[in-house]
């Protein structure tokens, strides 16, 4: 359903993405692993046009888009079918949890207000925050804020949700509540691309793991293969460093 070929991105004279190919099928949970600075965030942002790639090609739902020359319509097409969950939540601080979800539905989707509220309540219920709908972000814990962020994404019923390190800004004791919501969303068959360092999520939920380093995809495979016998030395050493308290024997 989403396929990208040869995405390249420079920041100034820094070559950040050096030709990324990625293919995502409906229902896939693709986890992207990789060291900090390898371009994971930039890749996700290019997929959602938060950043414009220099060149590359995207096919989404049969629509072919030249990323170097994407039109406003192309971008709107893709944005309408994707949702982004941010590392630092990026909730609207002047809006309640409920309004955080409804705002985009009313303004972007031109949904009637009552319908938007109904949709938002279903989404907030799914992330376990029905009782917090009138709270402002400043009155919510980090974990709760991120769950509102996820509710905001799923309420739009997108074809793909892009998660950029959704738990890495959280205190350790708050990580699990967010991961469990993500597992639930995945189990409902939502197509997800998740950048994370949570190996348990990668191992147990991902249908595919992609390892990125220095702007290229080094290796991609099922979690079983990646975690037990990766083909590339770089993947191996990355995993060895990250899984020090290991249940995994690589």
């Amino acid at each position: 359903m989403l396929e990208v070929r040869g995405i390249q991105k420079h920041f100034g004279d820094q070559h950040i993405l050096k030709g990324i190919d990625l293919s995502i099928e409906k229902g896939d949970v693709t986890v992207i692993l990789g060291p900090s600075g390898s371009g994971k965030t930039t890749l996700l942002r290019c997929l959602n046009f938060l950043e414009n790639a220099d060149c590359g090609e995207m096919t989404m739902d049969g629509r072919k888009i030249d990323l170097g020359r994407a039109s406003a319509k192309d971008k709107a097409f893709v944005k309408d079918r994707t949702a982004f969950v941010f590392q630092n939540y990026n909730l609207y601080n002047n809006k309640t949890a409920l309004e955080n979800v409804t705002e985009g539905l009313i303004l972007g989707r031109h949904m009637h207000k009552d319908e938007a509220i109904k949709t938002a309540r279903v989404a907030l219920d799914k992330v376990g925050l029905s009782d917090r709908e009138n709270y402002y972000p400043s009155q919510l814990s980090g974990g709760q804020q991120q769950r509102v962020g996820i509710a905001r994404a799923i309420a739009r019923n997108p074809e793909i949700i892009l998660f950029d390190e959704p738990t890495s800004a959280l205190d350790p004791e708050l990580i699990e509540e967010v991961l469990s919501v993500m597992r639930k969303v995945a189990n409902e068959g939502t197509t997800m691309v998740v950048v994370t360092h949570e190996m348990s999520f990668a191992e147990n939920v991902a249908t595919k793991v992609v390892f990125m380093d220095q702007g290229v995809i080094v290796e991609e495979d099922t979690p079983q293969v990646i975690f037990t016998h990766p083909k590339e030395e770089r993947t191996f050493s990355f995993l060895k460093n990250i899984i020090h308290d290991t249940d995994y024997v690589i």
């Binding site: 938060l50 944005k79 303004l107 972007g108």
Partner: peptide, 9 residues
């Protein structure tokens, strides 16, 4: 960014 990626102009 969140607003724009949520469909607002």
């Amino acid at each position: 960014e969140a607003a724009v990626s949520n469909g607002m102009t």
